[in-house]
Simulated assay, not measured.
Amino acid sequence: MIFTLICKDKPGQLDVRLANRPAHVDYLMALDKAGKLKFAGPFLGEDGKPIGSLVAVEAEDRAGAEQMAGGDPYSKAGLFESVEILPWNWVFKAPETK
Score class of each variant (00 low, 15 high):
Tyr74Lys: 07
Gly41Pro: 04
Ala63Lys: 14
Lys33Cys: 00
Phe39Pro: 01
Pro50Val: 06
Lys36Ser: 04
Val57Cys: 02
Tyr74Asp: 11
Met29Pro: 00
Lys49Phe: 05
Ala34Leu: 03
Gln13Gly: 02
Lys38Leu: 14
Val25His: 01
Val16Ser: 05
Gly45Ala: 08
Gln67Glu: 15
Arg21Tyr: 02
Lys33His: 07
Leu31Val: 03
Pro50Leu: 07
Leu31Gly: 00
Gly70Trp: 07
Ala19Thr: 08
Ala56Tyr: 02
Met29Gly: 02
Glu66Ala: 09
Gln67Ala: 15
Gln67Arg: 15
Val57His: 02
Asp72Val: 09
Glu58Phe: 03
Ala30Pro: 02
Tyr74Asn: 12
Ile51Cys: 12
Leu54Val: 14
Lys36Asn: 06
Leu37Thr: 02
Ala40Asp: 05
Arg21Met: 08
Gly71Ala: 11
Lys33Met: 05
Leu44Pro: 06
Arg17Ser: 07
Gly48Ala: 06
Tyr27Leu: 09
Asn20Ile: 11
Gly71Cys: 11
Asp61Glu: 13
Ala40Ser: 15
Gly45Ser: 09
Gly45Tyr: 03
Gly45Leu: 08
Ile51Pro: 01
Glu46Leu: 13
Met29Asn: 14
Met68Pro: 06
Leu28Glu: 09
Ala65Asp: 07
Gly41Gln: 03
Leu14Asn: 11
Lys49Glu: 14
Gly35Ile: 02
Phe43Leu: 14
Lys49Gln: 15
Val25Glu: 11
Glu46Ile: 13
Val25Cys: 00
Lys33Asp: 05
Lys33Thr: 09
Phe43Met: 14
Lys49Pro: 02
Ile51Gln: 09
Val25Pro: 01
Asp61Tyr: 04
Leu28Val: 05
Pro50Met: 10
Glu58Cys: 03
Gly48Phe: 03
Asp61Trp: 04
Ala30Thr: 12
Ile51Asn: 09
Gly52Asp: 05
Ala63His: 07
Glu66Ser: 10
Gly70Ile: 05
Gln67Tyr: 10
Ala30Val: 03
Leu14Ala: 10
Ala56Asn: 03
Glu60Trp: 02
Ala63Asp: 15
Arg62Cys: 04
Leu54Cys: 15
Ala56Arg: 02
Phe39Tyr: 08
Gly41Thr: 10
Ala34Ile: 00
Gly35Ala: 01
Leu31Cys: 04
Leu37Ala: 04
Glu60Ala: 14
Leu37Tyr: 01
Leu28Thr: 03
Gly70Val: 02
Ser53Thr: 10
Leu44Ser: 11
Val16His: 04
Gly41Leu: 05
Arg62Ser: 00
Pro22Lys: 06
Glu46Pro: 10
Met68Phe: 13
Glu46Trp: 01
Leu31Asp: 01
Ala34Gln: 08
Asp32Met: 06
Leu18Glu: 15
Pro22Ala: 05
Val55Met: 06
Ala59Gly: 09
Phe39Ala: 14
Gly70Asp: 13
Pro50Ser: 08
Gly41Ile: 10
Gly71Gln: 09
Asn20Ser: 13
Ala23Gly: 06
Leu18Gln: 15
Tyr27Lys: 02
Pro73Leu: 07
His24Pro: 10
Pro42Met: 07
Pro50Trp: 12
Lys36Val: 00
Glu58Tyr: 05
Tyr74Ser: 03
Gln67Ile: 09
Phe39Trp: 07
Ala23Ser: 12
Leu28Met: 14
